[in-house]
Simulated assay, not measured.
Amino acid sequence: MRVHHLNCGTCCPAGGRLFDGTSDGPLGHLVCHCLLIESDTGLILIDTGFGTRDIDHPHRRLSEFFLKLNNIQLRPEETAIAQLRAFGFSPSDVRHIVVTHLDFDHAGGIEDFPNATVHLTAREKEVADGRRGGAFVGTRRYRPAQWNDVSDWRL
């Protein structure tokens, strides 16, 4: 088994060190950390970061509030799909995606892997589908457009 650490999205919020603990400038540098695991049964992704559809249509798929607050840098080369292709893999090689939670910066690339089974806790799916978690935050952190084409959930 091999594990690859991926940055599947970069956010540069104002506040520097207050956000990331290390930046000396006015902007922080936060990454959407994902894992790509090579296993005997195929590839496994732990979270997906931002996906190609997020990059193509950010104002439809992501909250304007979080786009501005986080100063999200949507770079095609940072998508999980681009990085696994750079390793020589195909999107169809991804058999499983384990999503820690459905926040926009963890789940945006799910639909880039339509053949994968998506694993998630039942409670997280229930909360995300209801877009709960506070009226303001719940409607902005969960972006159902990022996962509404998923057909194979394992809760």
Rank of each mutant, 00 (worst) to 15 (best):
L36K: 08
H59M: 00
F89M: 05
A145R: 10
L84P: 09
G109F: 00
L102E: 10
E111I: 03
I81T: 11
L30S: 08
Y142Q: 12
R131H: 13
A145G: 13
V137I: 04
R131T: 06
V94M: 05
S90F: 04
I81Q: 10
A107D: 10
G130K: 14
A86R: 05
W153Q: 03
E126R: 14
P76C: 08
R53W: 05
L102K: 06
T79S: 04
H59Y: 08
V127M: 02
R143G: 09
Q73P: 00
R75G: 08
F104W: 03
T10V: 15
I46G: 10
A14M: 13
T117D: 12
T41N: 04
P13A: 04
I110Q: 03
G28I: 05
W153L: 01
H29M: 10
A80Y: 01
L74V: 05
S151I: 05
G130V: 07
R154T: 07
R143Q: 15
P144H: 09
W147V: 02
I46L: 14
T52A: 13
D40A: 12
R95L: 04
G133T: 02
R95F: 02
V150P: 10
L43S: 07
C34L: 02
F104I: 00
L69M: 12
R140W: 05
D149S: 06
T41I: 07
R143W: 06
S63K: 06
S39I: 01
E126M: 00
R75I: 14
L84D: 11
T100P: 00
P114M: 01
A14F: 13
G16N: 06
F50P: 00
F87A: 11
F113C: 10
D93A: 15
T100L: 02
F66P: 11
L45K: 05
T79E: 01
E124H: 10
P26Y: 07
P144G: 00
